[in-house]
């Protein structure tokens, strides 16, 4: 189980010595993923969702907040133990081509982490590494004999992403962080990779954090899980996946759902669908009111002066004037 409490990340941009501005990439994010559970972070680019994933994977240090893995605060243990702890949290990159060293074959890519695992287990039998290699490759739906000696550039995008997932599985993680894990893959192969991640979650009881801007993919992968809508580093709406998608309360969630293309011939457009024309302005630091107020089509005076807080409950949202709107497309038949 992974618990995150009041995570914050502030970057200071490189200006002149005197004029250093600060960017608050993550303002306040808390969530927990139970074993085998899933949570999807949705939001547009620049909303801070990727930073949350990188902090979890130990690639960046938070400015404030606590990350607990099975009850242990990962930032309060000795460096050696932290390496072992962080190994339990594996990040699946957006671009599988970047994530594999072009100089090494799949066999070489998998054997490096497996050697560490073999040492840890004290199981030094040569065949153990081999067997495990075959096992993880089969688990991700690849034929070991046909991919093992290939190089990353000889594989398709979908296969490469499966290799990246297989490599993550070699260290027996308990949490997978999938950052836009399918956006660089051919469409016909995307669903296959999403399906694989879902199966792994169920079969190996791995917790999954899925970071995406694609609501439909989040819905597919996060079946039975929760969804968090994040805007400018702040969670604006949170709740069970199906519920948030069918009954969104926050206008930003509604904007994201409206943006999903409607499949003419299979779906009807949602009655209240609206397209957000205004782009996110990272500089407009109206820190007093609701962060979304400057783009919100339903904003009222109060939104600019007073920041809404996340209300408690099964469904949480931070909006002064919540209202369910029918924005998601509806399946015909």
């Amino acid at each position: 189980m992974i618990e995150v409490e009041h995570l914050q990340k502030v970057y200071s941009t490189k200006g002149s010595l005197l004029n250093r501005s600060q960017v608050r990439a993550v303002r306040d994010v808390s969530f927990r993923i139970p074993e085998g559970g899933a949570i999807s972070f949705i939001g547009e680019s620049g909303c801070g969702k990727t930073t949350v994933g990188r902090i979890l994977a130990g690639l960046e240090a938070p400015s404030a907040g606590i990350v607990r893995l099975d009850g242990v605060n990962i930032h309060q243990v000795a460096a050696g133990e932290r390496r072992n702890l962080l190994r339990k949290i594996q990040l699946i990159h957006q671009d599988p081509y970047q994530a594999l060293n072009p100089a090494y074959s799949i066999e070489q890519a998998l054997s490096a982490p497996l050697r560490i695992m073999a040492k840890q287990k004290g199981d030094t039998a040569r065949t153990w590494i081999r067997d495990r290699m075959e096992e993880v490759l089969t688990m991700v739906g690849l034929d070991p004999a046909s991919v093992l000696y290939k190089y990353p550039h000889m594989l398709s995008g979908g296969q490469r992403q499966r290799i990246v997932i297989a490599r993550a599985l070699t260290v027996e993680p308990t949490v997978l962080v999938a950052d836009e894990a399918v956006s660089m893959i051919d469409v016909s192969l995307r669903l296959g990779v999403l399906r694989l991640l879902r199966d792994l979650r169920e079969k190996l009881n791995i917790s999954l954090l899925f970071i995406t801007h694609d609501v439909a993919a989040a819905r597919y992968l996060g079946k039975g899980g929760r969804i968090s809508v994040i805007y400018k580093g702040l969670i604006v709406e949170q709740g069970p996946t199906e519920g948030v998608i069918s009954r969104p309360q926050h206008p930003y969630t509604q904007a994201l759902l409206s943006a999903v293309p409607v499949l003419k011939g299979l779906e009807r457009m949602g009655a209240d669908r609206f397209i957000l024309a205004k782009e996110m302005n990272a500089q407009s630091a109206a820190e007093t009111g609701c962060l979304f107020a400057d783009r919100c089509p339903f904003a009222q005076e109060r939104c600019f002066s007073e920041a809404p807080t996340l209300i408690d409950g099964e469904y949480q949202y931070a909006c002064h004037f919540p209202e369910v709107r029918q924005v998601a497309a509806v399946a015909m038949e």
Binding site: A57, G58, L59, R83, N84, L86, R87, I89, Q90, L91, H93, D95, Q98, A99, L100, N101, A112, P113, I116, V164, R167, A168, T170, V171
Partner: peptide, 13 residues
């Protein structure tokens, strides 16, 4: 900064 180096760090190499 490339993905495979970050991945290697994540794998605890």
């Amino acid at each position: 900064e490339r993905g495979f180096i970050e991945a290697a760090r994540g794998l605890g190499l």
